[in-house]
């Protein structure tokens, strides 16, 4: 049975699209038939991050409005057999989506035998974000270690618990997962950034993973290859760990502590500092 997963945050620019692409890729790498749906109508970006921007013909709005059928709009990833993208429209706005239309698209995706349907939510708490989370079975709340992001995540948790289909129909609540991204252990150690333990304590939902601030993410988006493919990189490995945890495996956290320097390295560092 397909599971619908929303990747959401309230706040903009925290890494929802990066994470949707990376987790979707990870699940497909593990052999699960996965589709990533871009709900950011008007500001489509998932296609760029996944490197299929030149193959977009039809989009989610076309399917919702019955101007195209699902198979025409689905883009099959060139690298992975089990990975698909359903892009957003670039020319319309979020009002072009309606709940019945979205419900039909989700049903059609379920009927198309997908294991996971990942909904990349737009920022905010308005219509577009509500559409993206309404049908969710599980939610990945993407949070940066920063005050406004944590507060907005808390707000989105309230909305998941009150405005989703599961909430309205009094079904079992959405399973929530915390994904902390752009984490910088050095800044945390210096006391300039909220620590992971603080964020966990404040939001009080189970931790799915911690993605370090990483140049690899920038490079990956530059080249349109989800960072999960870069398995040499810290961020790529962190996303794969998160996928394992999502699938129920116990995996120790990585990239959350600063590398302890030896005395010699510290001396060198001090010298560098003095020279600079």
């Amino acid at each position: 049975m397909a599971e619908v997963i929303v990747v959401t945050s309230g706040k903009g620019g925290v890494g929802k699209t990066t994470s949707s692409a990376a987790l979707g890729t990870g699940l497909a790498l593990k052999g699960y038939r996965t589709v990533v749906v871009d709900f950011d109508v008007g500001l489509r970006n998932l296609d760029l991050i996944m490197g299929c921007e030149r193959r977009v013909v039809y989009d989610l709005v076309n399917v919702v409005k019955k101007e195209a059928n699902l198979n025409q709009a689905l883009i099959k990833d060139k690298r992975l057999e089990e990975l698909y993208i359903l892009p957003a429209s670039q020319t319309r706005d979020k009002d072009a989506l309606d709940i019945d239309g979205v419900a039909r698209v989700i049903e059609e995706l379920k009927a198309a035998n997908f294991d996971y349907i990942i909904c990349d939510s737009p920022a905010g708490i308005e219509k577009g974000a509500l559409m993206a989370l309404y049908f969710a079975d599980r939610a990945i709340v993407v949070t940066n270690p920063e005050v406004s992001s944590v507060r907005d995540s808390d707000r989105i948790l309230g909305i998941l618990a009150s405005k989703s289909k599961r909430a309205e129909e009094k079904l079992e609540p959405i399973r929530e997962h915390l994904l902390v991204t752009r984490y910088s252990p050095t800044r945390v150690e210096r006391g300039d950034m909220l620590a992971l333990s603080d964020i966990e304590e404040l939001l009080a939902i189970p931790l799915l993973g911690v993605i370090p601030e990483s140049l690899a993410v920038l490079r990956a988006s530059n080249s349109g290859i989800p960072v999960t493919f870069d398995q040499e990189s810290d961020a790529g490995q962190a996303y794969l760990d998160a996928v394992d945890r999502f699938l129920g495996h116990k995996v120790p956290l990585r990239f959350v502590n600063t590398k302890k320097r030896t005395l010699l390295q510290r001396l060198f560092k001090a010298k560098e500092g003095a020279a600079a």
């Binding site: 808390d154 707000r155 006391g191 300039d192 603080d198």
Partner: peptide
């Protein structure tokens, strides 16, 4: 009192209030 500690305390207050 580094800024991360301040951030946490401020969040505790605002989040509990909003909840």
């Amino acid at each position: 009192r580094n800024t991360a500690v301040t951030a946490k305390e401020r969040l505790q207050i605002v989040i509990s209030h909003e909840r």
